[in-house]
Amino acid sequence: MALLEKDSYEASGFQLSEATASDYLALLKPRVMSLVVFTAFVGMLAAPVPLNPMTAITAIISIAIGAGASGALNMWYDADIDAVMTRTSTRPIPAGKVKPGEALAFGLVLSALSVLTLGVFVNWIAGGLLAFTIFFYAVIYTMWLKRWTPQNIVIGGAAGSFPPMIGWAAATGNISLESVILFLIIFLWTPPHFWALALFKSGDYERAGIPMMPNVAGEESTRKQIFAYALLVAIVGVLPWYFGFASAAYGLVAVLLGAGFVWYSWQVLRMSPDDRKMKPAKALFGYSLLYLFGLFAAYLADSIVERAMTAAGA
């Protein structure tokens, strides 16, 4: 039984929360978190150093929680626009399950805990990168870029590109060209991925007042930019093999996946302006997820084989 002053709780609209643990879990954006964990894991395993399993587990948990915390901070700040977009209107805050202040506190506490845990138990280069990633996503992207410029997801995409670099830093304690290339792959992949979504969800973004590229520069310009970024990401995807960081098998997979990305983007480029179903854009959105997962899975397999061969030779 809760003891409260009746006048004060009635005046403030106070009511006891009915939020469950799954509502708080939803604040962490579990699907985004799974991609973050996967790419961070690849970055960690790609590093040519011995890994202590417990340190690796601590790093992955910290990175996952840090990514989730930035998601909670994003949902706290964006609750107003989430409410008017079909894709996001069922999120815990617009759905009335979690109060904005609760999400803010949840995000801040998890941010601090994840950075401290990674810094103290793994290393402070990784901890510092995680802190910067959370800051970049929550403040630079969410609070500043998202509502201000159509380049929002181009620059903001850096936040989603850091996890493999954090994984690499967790393993090695430094930043190197290999991890910068992994960063670049995700960084260049983000615009075509989100603009494909923005093409067939442009009404949503317009209602919410978000200056996404199709709403600001038009669909034709967006389609051209998607194709340009697809070419770039296809090239950068092959660089790990070119620089000798990965095997020719990885190189072959990267070329094939990259060719697929360019082909799907070409279909979007050729899409008729009258096409309101936008099947090519939807197909590109789906393929882009497959591309990133496939490329990093190939890099992961390559790293595991490399480690096994090193262990066998030792």
């Binding site: 039984m1 809760a2 002053e5 929360s17 643990a21 708080y24």
Partner: peptide, 26 residues
């Protein structure tokens, strides 16, 4: 704060269930 203005509120079944769920998760 006058003592006679103090009131207690009784949580509903749904609120109690949600609180128990959150407590277990924490």
């Amino acid at each position: 704060m006058a003592v006679d203005k103090l009131e207690t509120i009784t949580p509903t079944e749904a609120q109690l269930k949600a609180r128990r769920n959150r407590n277990i998760a924490i």
